[in-house]
Amino acid sequence: MKKDNDDIKKLFRSFGADANEFQELAREADASEAQSRWPLLSSVQPDKRELPPLLSKAEKSQSWRAPEQHAQRASKPTKQAGGLGDKLSNSLKQQLAAKQSNPSLAQPVAAPVQAATSRGNRNTMLPKLGQTEVTPPAQGKPKGMFSFAGEQNARTKSKAQSDDALSSVFKRIGQQTEETAAPVLRKGLLGRLGRP
């Protein structure tokens, strides 16, 4: 090989040319041939500094942010799916709307005075929490567990409405499960043992 190179050098010298140029041309030809054989060798160029230079200290301090800051910037994705949770929340909204349409039901429930006295003074802790006294119900008479029959009826009616909304949801869920799951009859222990 070395002898061949020497021969080529002598040949080029005899023509007054530079043998190094020939060798460079031959190398370029070999390299392009090699690159055509292996895709990686043509896709990556060794002399191309494609990567960005590493950050200087000043740049690092500018670009770096605490993880909390990144978290603040990140927006929470909005929920779009209309699943069971959405149906239940709609039902609850309907309940709330029903309550708002009937103001008597929207008032807070307070325990009867008797109950409060019988259990001791439970309001002693409230001043510490910034409240001076329990706000009585607007309608004069306390409403609570033992409310009057008329109010009870109105409540029951409204509750029935909301129950209807909930039951319609659960009915739909039930239908879905009935459609998807085959009915499984559970036998008693004796039945499974084949005894009457």
Binding site: R27, R37, W38, L41, P46, D47
Partner: peptide
């Protein structure tokens, strides 16, 4: 190894 020799050839041609 053909690949090895090709890698050397390409790196030499570039660097």
């Amino acid at each position: 190894n053909t690949l090895g020799l090709d890698v050397i050839e390409v790196v030499r041609s570039h660097l």
